[in-house]
Nucleic acid binder design. Sequence first.
DNA 1: CGTGCCGTTGAAGGTTCTCAACCGTGGTGG
DNA 2: CCACCACGGTTGAGAACCTTCAACGGCACG
Lengths: 228, 228
Amino acid sequence: MVANDAFGSFLRDIPRSTPHASTACGLQKLAHLLPICRGSMVPLDPTENSLAYVASGATKLIASASGGREQIVAFHFRGDLVSVPGNAWHSYDLCALVDTQILLFPAREFIDLTRTDPAFEDILLERSLTALHRCRDKAVGLGRKNAQERLASFLVGMAERIGTREDGTTILDLPMSRRDIGDSLGLTIETISRQFGELRKSGLVQTVGRCRVELCDLAELAKRAGHA
Amino acid sequence: MVANDAFGSFLRDIPRSTPHASTACGLQKLAHLLPICRGSMVPLDPTENSLAYVASGATKLIASASGGREQIVAFHFRGDLVSVPGNAWHSYDLCALVDTQILLFPAREFIDLTRTDPAFEDILLERSLTALHRCRDKAVGLGRKNAQERLASFLVGMAERIGTREDGTTILDLPMSRRDIGDSLGLTIETISRQFGELRKSGLVQTVGRCRVELCDLAELAKRAGHA
DNA sequence: CGTGCCGTTGAAGGTTCTCAACCGTGGTGG
DNA sequence: CCACCACGGTTGAGAACCTTCAACGGCACG
């Protein structure tokens, strides 16, 4: 059963150990299993914080500023738990990059339920801190780096998360478009394209078709990313 | 006793209720009370995540990228709890804006100690999520906003946190310099200065001396901040 | 095989940065 | 108490980087 598969992988990915039967049961009742088509938004309650577990697929978390400008705040992949702010300065949407299965929870109830279960005890805190530290590293890039450093930084980060190594080079199959990369790095698609060109010329990167990127020299790329 | 004052305000600010005596005692042993002079860094273990409680004063959390570029990732004020990443792409420092008292904890031990105490149960999670959501809102500004919107956004944010209202106008006594504001917004001091000039000309802001800023029309300022 | 979208490339323009000089405030010492 | 000094802030001109606008190319899908 598909529903059970998604919840099953949730129970495998998130808690540190087997949770209490009552917690698991309560969470299952709380969860909404949502199949989201590529390009569609996860239907969120805009007044409450939400927690979304990515059972399969990949998503982008979009913040909308005035004037139709969009900033992608984070990408997420299978097994990730996303905290989406309900009330904030900007409005947030979670959008599927490919066909995706989401388990959606209201954050408050989720926390109330898992509070007393040692299996969930501080896993949420750990995940939040990881997200916070990623977001801070991202903020450094947005505030203080030029286009090439930002793209290099992006590629190194993706390599860590979804890269596969193959005799010395790292293979990336990116589920996001150039526009998404631009919206994530605070740049335009044209600039992204030009910087890919530069990295190609430097022999650090090869692109195959639209999605595949091969990173030939990850160490040099990290240098160009300005990671201090 | 000064040490007890700092730890006392910690116990008043952070836990939701009175913690177990054993938790409180363990935390007190774990804590290092550090008086930090204006402009000095909090001595952090660069290999471990740290938690810093701001007992008094104000701090900036600085990330250093290569080439001596600095990005201020967050400001903190009395009562705030700061999570400082140990190992990340960029190196982080916590710096006092004014003479400040810090209670410093190693994050791991802090979490281990408070894990089973209902008074601390999810307060850490809540604080982390607040920090995460602030950081995301900041990322939107750094990625997609022009100088004026960033400064307006900064002022509105500070008004929420340390502003005092006085017959219609909001008074801000900023503990940070123009350079700090620039380093926080990904801009130079010159741009900050020019944008202050613009806001003054628009009649939205008055500046008194170096530190005091008076916000005459908070609603209009929020509009200019591009909060959607 | 055609079509449409995504990505690439080029030229012009704008916002912010850089460099430089100046000003004002606040603090110190005579 | 005043004068001076140093630092932080302001203002101006020129340059850099990225954006905008526009046209073209190519992969993937029907």
